[in-house]
Simulated scan of single mutants.
Amino acid sequence: MSFRALRRPAALAAVSALVGVALAGCALVPSARETVLPPAPAPVASTSVPTVAPSTAAPVPAPPAVVGDEMDCGGAAVQLSGADQDFTLVGECPEVTAGGTELDIDMTRATVGTFLLNGDRNDVDVASVGAIVVGGQDNEIDASAVTQLTLNGERNEVEADGRIDAVTVSGNDNRVTAGSLGTVADQGQRNTLAAR
Rank of each mutant, 00 (worst) to 15 (best):
A58S: 10
G135I: 00
L89E: 04
F3D: 14
P50G: 12
V184C: 04
D186F: 01
A5I: 13
P94E: 06
P38S: 13
D138N: 12
G179P: 03
S170A: 12
Q189L: 11
A53K: 14
G136Y: 04
R33G: 11
R109M: 14
E92F: 09
T35M: 07
V158P: 04
A160M: 03
P50D: 11
G162R: 05
G82K: 01
T147A: 13
S46W: 09
I164Y: 09
F3H: 12
G82H: 02
D186E: 01
S55E: 11
P54T: 15
N156K: 05
G119I: 04
V112R: 08
L89N: 05
P30W: 04
V52R: 10
A40K: 09
R190W: 14
L193E: 10
R7E: 13
S144K: 06
D142H: 03
T108I: 08
L193V: 15
G74P: 03
G179S: 07
G188L: 07
Q148P: 00
A40E: 12
G25H: 01
G182V: 09
A17K: 02
V126I: 15
A14S: 14
N191P: 03
C26N: 10
L116G: 07
M1R: 08
V96N: 01
V124A: 03
D161T: 15
V19G: 08
A42T: 15
Q137G: 14
T147Q: 08
L37P: 02
N139R: 05
L6N: 09
N139S: 07
G188N: 10
V167Q: 04
A77G: 03
L80D: 01
A5V: 13
P39A: 14
A58N: 10
D72T: 11
Q148A: 08
D138G: 04
G68V: 01
L12R: 07
E102T: 13
Q79Y: 02
L28V: 14
T111I: 12
R196T: 12
L89S: 04
G171E: 04
V52N: 04
V167H: 07
Q79F: 01
A58V: 08
A76Y: 03
V96W: 01
T101Y: 09
D165G: 08
G182N: 11
A40S: 12
A145F: 02
